[in-house]
């Protein structure tokens, strides 16, 4: 192990400033105290964020008519195209729901105190987003049902039924 020839002590600040600040550097100032005096733009930002969040939340709803048209176009027969569309319809909402927190992250306002979900401004957009995604899933389910891929009828369970045991033996 090599011996320590030199060291920085990060705990103790430099005792004396000898180097001149670079040009354009205004020095260390209290940014927070400066912003406190400028409230107007902050409020605008919040509104903008919520508005943006609503846009994101309503986006799946806007896609629905298009998806309905695609479903109608693909038909009810089990084919690679219709299955692909239906699978997409099923998986993309799930994926979106999984990544919901990331989607809305940038519209989040960090808050020092803990705010309950219902009180947060993004609650309504988020709920709307989830509802619309679920609606899309329901759309997919409806499609699956129309294609006959949901085990809802007797015929789907026929293979799992046990035959009746005859009580009498006749020869």
């Amino acid at each position: 192990m090599a011996a320590h020839n030199w060291k920085f002590d990060f705990a103790a600040p430099e005792p004396k400033r000898t180097i001149v600040d670079p040009p354009g550097f205004s020095g260390l100032k209290d940014v927070a105290s400066k912003n406190q005096g400028n409230r107007g733009p902050v409020v605008d930002n919040e509104l903008l964020k919520v508005k943006k969040a609503w846009d994101v939340a309503l986006a799946p709803g806007k896609q629905l008519p298009m998806q309905a048209f695609m479903l109608w176009m693909s038909g009810n027969s089990v084919q690679i195209f219709s299955v692909a569309i239906t699978a997409m319809l099923m998986f993309s909402p799930i994926k979106a729901l999984m990544s919901m927190s990331q989607v809305f992250e940038r519209y989040e306002t960090p808050s020092p105190v803990k705010v309950s979900f219902m009180d947060s401004k993004l609650a309504l957009p988020k709920v709307t987003f989830v509802a619309l995604q679920l609606l899309t899933i329901l759309f997919g389910m409806y499609k699956l049902n129309a294609m006959g891929l949901l085990p809802t009828s007797h015929s789907d369970w026929l293979a799992f039924m046990d035959p009746k045991t005859p009580l009498e033996y006749a020869a």
Binding site: G148, S153, H154, D156, L158, A159
Partner: peptide, 11 residues
Amino acid sequence: SLGRVLGDRGV
């Protein structure tokens, strides 16, 4: 098969 599947997937 214990039943016969109809066109509407009934048995």
